Amino acid sequence: MNYLLRTTNLVKKFKDKEVVTNVNMNIKKGEIYGFLGPNGAGKTTIMKMIVNLVKPSSGEIEIFGEKLTNGAYETLKRIGSIIEYPVFYDKLTGRENLELHCEYMGYYDKSAIDKVIDLVNLKDIEHKDVKDYSLGMKQRLGIARAIITRPEFLILDEPINGLDPIGIKEIRNLLKMLCKEYNITILISSHILGEIEQIADTIGIINNGKLIEEISMDIVREQNTEYVEIITMDFKKAAYILENDLNISNFKIVDNNKIRIYDLKLAQKDISKALILKGIEIEAINKKNSTLEDHFLKLLEGSELSA
């Protein structure tokens, strides 16, 4: 299999604390890899190690088939990135920031600036000083800067922070296009799991510095379970009726107002009717499929229990 990036037993310690532990990532060429984990799990530290901003304590990083070293300048030229909050020269315009970046990178295709400004929808504000940009505008400018040199590998740490729903959709479509039409491999982290679910080919889930799963999204989708979700404040009484009157034992109480029933031997209307006749006030009842968020939370829960 053709991997663009592989890490082998990657470890990072800050003083005596190990924040990344024996991580083995495998990112295939031409895919979108969703990197998931709670705050402080180690995602950003790993991304910084990949672009040589932080040195590993031990282990190896291989990119484009070559081991990453301190002098791997040509390798790093093939990578675009936004890691943590993008920083700009605030008193320069968006266009001037992009021009400066191109000069720094030795990239002299001036038409590329017009193209990326169009791609990230900054056409009307490119001549505005960056100090007057909103957070969402700065995120767009950061993405423009990351892709302007046509990198082969794009690393994006929370790139949709500060964007409204329309902006999020635009960036989602942009990333899909960059991967499909330009064959750019993308590593992206985000707290918005629904977005990762829509664009990722593979996901890696990290918790407490350990990569606890690396799995194809196709497999996650195949594992999706159908269930009936009931929203009611009478969840305790409803749970009693399900178990004792309807003989349903395969259900789970979520958030103290939701019951998810995985045993679907009874029709949704029959469950609803039985609960209403017993005086249960039902706010909503729907048939659903488990999501990436369900998979993610279940996996994190299991990793915490085994820790």
Rank of each mutant, 00 (worst) to 15 (best):
Y240N: 14
A239V: 07
N224I: 06
Y227Q: 03
I248Q: 06
I231S: 12
E226S: 15
F251D: 00
M233H: 09
V228K: 03
E226Q: 13
N247F: 03
I253G: 10
T225H: 08
L242D: 02
E243C: 08
A238T: 04
T225F: 03
Q223R: 14
D245Y: 08
N247G: 04
D245R: 09
T225S: 13
K237H: 07
I231G: 01
S249H: 04
T225E: 14
F251H: 02
K252L: 06
F251P: 02
F251E: 02
N224K: 15
M233N: 08
Q223K: 13
N247W: 02
Y227G: 04
K237Q: 08
D245V: 05
Y240E: 13
D245N: 12
M233I: 12
S249C: 03
A239T: 11
M233Q: 09
Q223F: 14
L246M: 13
T232N: 02
D245P: 05
V228E: 09
K252V: 10
K252T: 10
I231F: 02
D245W: 03
I231A: 11
Y227S: 12
I248N: 05
D245S: 12
E226L: 10
N250F: 02
Y240P: 01
S249P: 01
E229A: 15
I241K: 00
D234I: 00
N247I: 07
Q223G: 07
N250G: 08
